[in-house]
């Protein structure tokens, strides 16, 4: 649950001053010395350890005893031909797409709703936001109970002729053969998406709301003067103005959903036929329960790469936006 977008660190010293050669004083050394421990820690514990994990992923360490002999890409080859990992990839894609789509639509809808100067607005806002303060473990435990197939929401849906098996359902919607698995939407994932949406929508609402508040009233007034209806105002003017926020929301939600572990581990586990399994859960179980360290490291590296695809361009572009 973190956010980025590096706010412009104001360089109030303008061109002529910046030209002036900065004097490197003892204080600058002191400043650097204060920063140094953190930099060392990050380089060691983030970059160094990633490298180390990468090394484990190409080793033969698949038992309790470390075996550092070189295995080449054997572990990756194994993974991509593994039924479970293929299912994980499908589930992650489905989960990420559905989760982000719903969060964006619901987030915009609720933010606009809260922007209508309703009575009790702050109460509604708090109701939409509070799940963010909870742990994914708590969310998982509660929604596991709510989506229990023989009870929960089904008690309401049964009279309507619906009787979903929720996260115990092994149906794959719109499936076609893909490697060893059937690609499509695993129905069991819907329950997980609902729980994740419940927890994370507030995040998007908060961001969109901040965006809406930043749009000057003159913009709305001008549109209304020109005879735009409220619907046109939002559809044609406000929503396009919120697009940069949507980019941030996508990045933040994508990196959460690509590495999701605790929610699914607490709520459903891998599920029958791995219908709710994700790489995070597989990595945990195969490494720490099965002692397949090299395989676990390979899963971790795949996860890292999938997150990096989103994050690295985003970080680079925010850095450029700053200077």
């Amino acid at each position: 649950m973190e956010t980025v977008k590096i706010a412009p660190a104001k360089e109030t010293t303008t061109v002529p001053v910046a030209r002036k050669k900065r004097k490197w004083t003892a204080d600058h050394w002191l400043a650097t010395a204060f920063l140094a421990p953190s930099v060392v820690l990050i380089f060691l514990f983030v970059y160094g350890f990633i490298g180390w994990t990468g090394y484990v992923s190409v080793s033969n360490w698949n038992s309790l005893v470390p075996d550092w002999s070189f295995a080449g890409l054997k572990n990756y080859q194994y993974l991509f031909q593994d039924f479970r990992f293929q299912a994980d990839l499908r589930n992650t894609i489905v989960f990420t797409v559905l989760f982000i789509a719903v969060v964006i639509v619901l987030g915009q809808l609720l933010a606009i709703l809260l922007d209508q100067k309703l009575r009790g607005e702050s109460l509604f806002r708090n109701i939409f936001f509070f799940p963010m303060a909870l742990s994914f473990v708590v969310t998982g435990v509660v929604w596991q109970w709510l989506f229990n197939p023989s009870t929960g929401v089904n008690l309401f849906l049964k009279p309507l002729g619906l009787d979903s098996k929720w996260y115990t359902d092994t149906t794959i919607l719109g499936g076609f053969q893909w490697g060893k698995i059937e690609f499509g939407i695993p129905l069991a994932m819907i329950a997980v998406v609902v729980a994740a949406v419940w927890q994370m929508t507030g995040f998007a609402v908060a961001m969109y709301l901040a965006g809406l508040r930043a749009i000057p009233d003159e913009v709305r007034e001008a549109a209304r003067m020109d005879g735009a209806t409220e619907l046109q105002l939002y559809w044609k003017i406000i929503l396009p103005l919120l697009r940069p926020i949507t980019v941030s929301v996508i990045i933040i939600m994508a990196h959460i959903s690509l590495k999701i572990f605790d929610l699914i581990y607490a709520m459903t586990g891998p599920g029958a036929n791995f219908v709710t399994d994700v790489p995070g859960v597989y990595m945990f179980e195969t490494t720490f329960r099965g002692n397949y360290y090299a395989n676990g490291a390979a899963i971790a590296i795949v996860m890292l790469l999938s997150v990096a695809i989103f994050i690295v361009p985003y970080l680079i572009s925010s850095r450029k936006g700053e200077s």
Binding site: V4, F49, F284, Y293, A300
Partner: peptide, 11 residues
């Protein structure tokens, strides 16, 4: 802050 912590967990 964006990395999946799985990728540093073993070391």
């Amino acid at each position: 802050m964006f990395i999946p912590y799985q990728s540093i967990l073993i070391p």
